[in-house]
């Protein structure tokens, strides 16, 4: 420690005090609260999807479309796997704020980059079997009357839409990861 270069700076907030430790009993940090709220929102959306898909699965099963019903059930399983993956990724958030600032920042960026880069395997892939089954069942329902070629052509727009949405999610996440890689490289260059 040396003399501060500008006394105007260190003259500020001279009467500051710490919060009493007793108030920490039921407290979590703002970051943890933010993560918990975000997870709660994602679980809420996931549960809504499960309820909606379950209802459609029941309706299609009641109408005798068992293959379609199976597709929706597989989709529900996919959503459950995504939710489980969300929990696993969130639990990997180990708080070690006593690391030096560069290492701390780097660790945060690497963790975010890994989550973004692996979005295909933990977020998109679990939903693919259900999507394929639902679209295949939709084609199979009418294939007997109009033939498989026309039936598949009829489901092509829906399939293309799903592929575009999945592709966009993957592209956006990979683009964000590339920005993080540039940040990480910049930090490494400071060593």
């Amino acid at each position: 420690m040396t003399n501060p270069p500008f006394l105007q700076w260190t003259d500020q907030s001279q009467d500051a005090q710490f919060v009493l430790p007793g108030t920490f009993a039921a407290k979590s940090s703002r970051l943890e609260t933010t993560v918990r709220r975000r997870n709660a929102l994602e679980y809420g959306v996931g549960l809504f999807c499960i309820a909606a898909f379950g209802w459609v699965a029941w309706l299609t099963a009641s109408a005798g479309a068992l293959l379609m019903s199976a597709g929706w059930i597989v989709l529900i399983i996919g959503v459950i796997v995504v939710l489980a993956n969300l929990t696993r990724i969130a639990s990997n958030l180990e708080r070690r704020p006593e690391l030096d600032c560069r290492s701390h920042l780097r660790a945060q960026l690497v963790r975010q980059k890994q989550a973004l880069n692996s979005v295909t395997s933990w977020y998109l892939a679990p939903l693919v079997p259900g999507m394929v089954l639902v679209l295949g069942a939709a084609a199979a329902q009418v294939a007997g009357e109009i033939g498989w070629l026309k039936a598949l052509a009829g489901t092509a727009p829906s399939a293309m839409f799903v592929v575009l949405v999945f592709g966009a999610v993957r592209w956006l996440n990979h683009r964000a990861a590339r920005k993080l890689v540039a940040e990480i490289d910049r930090l490494d260059a400071l060593e």
């Binding site: 420690m1 500008f6 700076w9 560069r102 290492s103």
Partner: peptide
């Protein structure tokens, strides 16, 4: 600004 020396800043920041 807080008056930390270069060596202290290096240890805190990892630079």
């Amino acid at each position: 600004l807080e008056g930390q020396t270069g060596a202290e800043i290096a240890e805190i920041t990892g630079l």
